[in-house]
């Protein structure tokens, strides 16, 4: 009995998480709980989270603010759209091949972009995304230009096809969960630690045997793969794409998502993604002012909570732990070596 008890205590967080996730999975995708419109918004939030999960690696762990996310998503989305509509591929192989080639493309781009450091890298990544947008808009014979591509098939394998937004949610739920777990795993592995070193002091990192350039390129490739995957899912979910959502200013929105949630937290990235997808829908009647609201919001956010929502949570937890420790040490004085 004791053994079972200590197992529960040890894994309390995981158990609560599993229960909550199971409840969410079964309760949320029901017409009585959320309507189709809200379901669609949540789905989009999850798709954006997949892209933002990549930012958790390159920006959160590696400290490299990149505006390439939207561009990489665009490449992923358009290649899925073209492979399925022009070549008649099934959605899953199209998705896999798209992610694969965009990942390889990210290797090349990463090697080139990380010749530059700091803000120069960020500016170059804006250039990169603008370039992709220009190609998508102007290569009329292939991409259809501003009109975009219609009639992209639904996500599915064989006869198992997502018929509505609720079905999509059930799939995206697991995809988002997998992405979350992968990023958490990276955070706890050597790559996460090495990126932390590179972020805070590149020279010290080099002196600890870390190849800073290679490490940054790897983080860029991971971010590219996540973004391409998100782009492909976006195409299969919306079933119509145009170049507009792949402009570089959309990359800024992804950056806001991760900053809002907390740059150091994968869970925060999820919260940020869902919130920043929901907010524009909520304030649609203010559409003309939405940029203004974002701008002011970001300035306030960066001043009030530079580490985002999860940063606040972390600080609170940290203070509580300190307080608890103080109380403990008041009861039993700890021997301090001095």
């Amino acid at each position: 009995m004791d053994k079972a008890k200590s197992f529960v205590q040890k894994n309390l967080g995981t158990i609560i998480g599993a229960v909550v996730l199971t409840l969410v999975f079964f309760i949320v995708p029901n017409k009585g709980v959320v309507n189709a419109y809200i379901m669609k918004v949540i789905n989009l939030g999850l798709i954006y989270f997949v892209a933002v999960a990549g930012l958790c690696v390159i920006l959160g762990m590696g400290g490299q603010p990149t505006f390439s996310t939207a561009g990489m998503m665009g490449l992923g989305a358009y290649s899925v759209a073209l492979l399925t509509t022009l070549k008649g591929w099934a959605p899953i192989p199209a998705l896999l091949v798209s992610v694969l080639w965009v990942t390889l493309f990210s290797v090349v781009m990463g090697l080139a972009l990380f010749r530059l450091k700091g803000s120069y890298f960020s500016f170059a990544s804006i250039g990169f995304t603008s370039l992709i947008f220009t190609v998508l808009t102007n290569w009329l014979s292939l991409t259809g230009g501003p009109d975009g591509i219609k009639n992209i098939p639904r996500l599915g394998i064989g006869n198992l096809v997502c018929q509505n937004y609720y079905d999509y949610f059930r799939v995206l739920f697991f995809i988002a969960l997998a992405c979350y777990l992968i990023v958490q795993r990276i955070r706890k592995s050597y790559l996460g630690r090495a990126l932390g070193c590179v972020r805070d002091n590149e020279i010290a990192a080099q002196c600890m045997g870390i190849n800073a350039y290679r490490t940054k390129v790897i983080s860029f490739v991971i971010a590219g793969a996540f973004a391409a995957f998100a782009g492909g899912l976006y195409a299969l979910h919306e079933r119509y794409i145009s170049p507009a959502p792949f402009q570089y200013d959309q990359s800024a929105i992804y950056l806001i998502m991760i900053m809002l949630g907390g740059v150091n937290s994968t869970g925060g990235a999820l919260i940020g993604s869902l919130f920043m997808t929901w907010l524009p829908e909520r304030i649609r009647f203010l559409a003309a002012y939405s940029r203004l609201i974002y701008g002011i919001g970001v300035i306030i956010l960066m001043n009030v909570m530079p580490m985002g929502i999860m940063g606040l949570v972390d600080n609170f937890r940290y203070k509580m732990r300190k307080k608890m420790k103080k109380n403990q040490s008041a009861e039993t004085p700890v021997k301090e070596a001095e």
């Binding site: 592995s189 050597y190 996460g192 630690r193 932390g196 070193c197 972020r199 805070d200 002091n201 020279i203």
Partner: peptide
């Protein structure tokens, strides 16, 4: 000292062990 101020003490020190172990990503 040049540490990562945002990482935990454990992560900061483990980098040394990682180097010793010739750890790969």
């Amino acid at each position: 000292p040049r540490f990562s101020p945002r990482s935990s003490i454990r992560d900061n020190l483990l980098v040394g062990t990682d180097l010793d172990n010739k750890m790969g990503y």
